[in-house]
Design a protein around this nucleic acid. Structure first.
Lengths: 133, 133
DNA sequence: AGAATCACTATCCATAAGGTACCTATGTAT
DNA sequence: ATACATAGGTACCTTATGGATAGTGATTCT
């Protein structure tokens, strides 16, 4: 039965021409996850985001925010002052998504140890480079 | 307050050296989403997955499955027959995750129209190439 | 005999991620 | 007066990654 696989909306993310597939593609980015999670509890400025998202480069931050804005998940507000001030906040749609993405983040944090162990076991089974006494 | 941002597990996905950050990185792939969703209701063979995940290349399928296996989300079973028979199924950890990823998939399918509209509006505002009467 | 199934593997190329440097405009410090 | 800091970017370049194409070996189907 495939009926369980199809959403009741007529969209099917398994088909690469389906709009929902491109949505999934857009969500499949660690910076999207983290940016949306970071904005979850309120608006932030560019610099605040840059500090919160450890390791993000200005280019990736701008790119990610522009994409989220384009897709209607983030609202960008510019204040005409010097030095410039720009604030970002989630739209309603974005907040809706943020709930789910936060769950994924929590899952990642909760199960990180298990996965770390699994990886260690995998490289021990495979790599097998330790000099056994 | 940052307290709400930190999980009760001592892991913080915002820090790029945290194991949970690498877990998030691993999850940030459309093929991971779709593969885990596809295996949600039972074990499948390589070929069955290849047909279900429209557009995936054999390389990406193998790569994705190997990664999921390495991280303990998928179990791989080989039958020593000719022609070869290999089956994949979710581990308990994988099934646990599949619930969340299915929600993301449903969200993508449910909100695809809104996002499509937002994109159309964005390119209309920006592109602005239509000859206005 | 030739094609198809099956589960991969190897190779190449285009795209995307990522890093560094620089730009705008102002106020402040020296 | 020159230099620096702030803030929010853009431009340029290098390196990973994703994706396309073709091939492997053994067997069954037509």
């Amino acid at each position: 039965m495939d009926s369980e696989d199809r959403s009741p909306f007529g969209y099917d993310a398994f088909r690469r021409t389906c709009p929902s597939h491109t949505v999934l593609e857009m969500l499949a980015s660690k910076w999207v996850y983290l940016t949306v999670c970071a904005l979850r509890r309120g608006r932030l400025r560019n610099g605040e985001l840059a500090r919160k998202l450890e390791g993000i480069t200005p280019k990736m931050l701008t790119q990610t925010l522009r994409m989220l804005e384009r897709d209607g998940l983030v609202r960008r507000e510019v204040f005409a002052v010097i030095p410039p001030r720009v604030e970002y906040e989630l739209t309603e749609l974005g907040q809706n998504l943020a709930g789910l993405l936060s769950q994924i983040r929590s899952w990642a944090e909760e199960h990180a140890p298990e996965i770390k162990d699994a990886r260690a076991r995998a490289s021990a089974d495979h790599g097998e480079m330790g000099a056994a006494p």
